[in-house]
Structure formats: C-alpha cells, structure tokens
Amino acid sequence: MKYTILLLASFAFFTVEASSQCRGFTKRNCVPILEDYLQNDNYNAAILIPGDEAELDMAFYGGVSYRIVVCSHSILGEVEFSLNDYNGNALWTNTDGEKHLDIQVATTQQLSVKIKVPSNESSLIHEGCVSIMLGSKE
C-alpha cells in the first residue's frame, strides 16, 4: 500500500513540477516579448504534446493596440497560430513562424487565437510549455 502511495505521489509531484516549470518558462521567455505593452492579467499556459490544439477567445477593445504572443518550447517545433474573427474565419496565420502579432481593431469585437502543435511521427513524444500572452497599449 505504501509503495502505491509513493508511486501516486511521484506522479502528483510531476504534475506540480510541470506546472511550476511552465510558469518559469512563461516568465523568462514570453513576458519580455510584450515589451511596453500592458500585460493582461490572465495567465494562459499549458503543457502540450504534438498534435494538441489550444484556443483563446476574448473581446478586444476598438481603437486599442494589442500584442498577442504565442510562446512555446522549442521541443514542440514550429507551433502554428492564427487569429480568427467571431465566425472562425482566419484573419492572419503565422506562416513565417512569427511568435507574436500586433493588431488594432476598429470596433470592439470577439476574436480567437488558435494554436496547433505540429504532429510528430517519432515514437518518443515530448511535451512542452505553450503560453499565450496578451498586452495592450494606447
């Protein structure tokens, strides 16, 4: 019984450890990309594997400049991200491997940021941190 508990505890430890390292990764690698944009106060980061997708939907104020940062661990390869309108139509995609996008919207509206981690045929699947950060400025 005590060995089973130890095994379960070790997996719990790794879940917390993964979360902790994702926070550290975001702080060191993603926050600086915002530069002088004011950081939105929502933390959006997760451990993903090849083939995973992620999506963030949010209202963007008209007349405000935004920076959208999608930051990911290099082990996941070139993560694709796109900006879509409220109907799901793609407005922009990071075809050149960009890690951030600056936007301004004419009228306040819902937009969504969609992310796809490229699939991997390798038998060994690595996981890595993916973080979406939003910043705004006048």
Partner: peptide, 27 residues
C-alpha cells in the same frame, strides 16, 4: 534533458480570458 509526455492522446485546451480592469479604466 527533456521528458517523455505522460499522455499520448491529443487534446484541445480552451483558455478563457477577459480584458483587465486596467484596460477598461484606460479607455
């Protein structure tokens, strides 16, 4: 060193956020 993933089944993670009070105060 990197670690092997603890899962193999892919998922879609949904993040939720709202403009912060600071953004609203500014406009």
């Amino acid at each position: 060193k990197t670690e092997a993933a603890k899962r193999t089944k892919t998922l879609k993670k949904i993040f939720r956020a709202a403009p912060s009070p600071m953004e609203t105060a500014r406009i």
